[in-house]
């Protein structure tokens, strides 16, 4: 489900079935490597949409957690932990942070739940058919991450 009026109605009626939050983590930066940041953002949004399509009935895809790239990592980490706590307390027992920004890997162990880091693939000029293939390939890796996560106990928050 998406963060839209239509989907949120479904969510409100079927809350007990929707236990997984997907939060894309997307950096903003107009100073350095602007295009690379835009590309990263597009890539993550595309993958987030694909995940949502696959797992529509159990996942709520949130609007991206967006931050200034040169903001200290500690600061955004603690903001993300706040998001996590909010959604966790509202019944999302599983939270997935989806990003292409390598910074997050440095603090992966300090995050309350699962970081899915994907190396950003540049697909600006890719033909649709290759784009589709590429998304499918990525999804092959991502699908088991989620289904396995669902088999295991939700991570406890401190």
């Amino acid at each position: 489900m998406k963060w839209t009026m239509q989907d949120i109605d479904t969510y409100l009626q079927a809350k007990e079935y929707v236990d997984t939050a997907v939060i894309p983590l997307i950096p903003i930066d107009l100073k350095e490597d602007v295009k690379q940041k835009v590309s990263m953002g597009t890539f993550i949004s595309t993958m987030a949409d694909a995940i949502e399509r696959q797992f529509k009935g159990r996942v709520l895809l949130f609007p991206a957690f967006t931050y200034i790239k040169n903001q200290p990592l500690e600061k955004r980490k603690s903001e993300l932990i706040d998001w996590d706590r909010h959604v966790y307390e509202q019944g999302f027992k599983h939270v997935v942070y989806l990003t292409a920004d390598g910074d997050w890997k440095q603090v992966e162990d300090e995050l309350p739940d699962m970081l899915v880091w994907l190396p950003a693939l540049p697909f600006e000029n890719m033909e649709d058919r290759y784009l589709k293939q590429m998304i499918d390939q990525q999804m092959k890796q991502i699908i088991p991450l989620l289904t396995n996560k669902w088999q295991s106990e939700p991570k406890q928050r401190p």
Partner: peptide, 8 residues
């Protein structure tokens, strides 16, 4: 599309 809540 699953007729429950729409997963694939």
């Amino acid at each position: 599309v699953c007729t429950h809540l729409g997963c694939t």
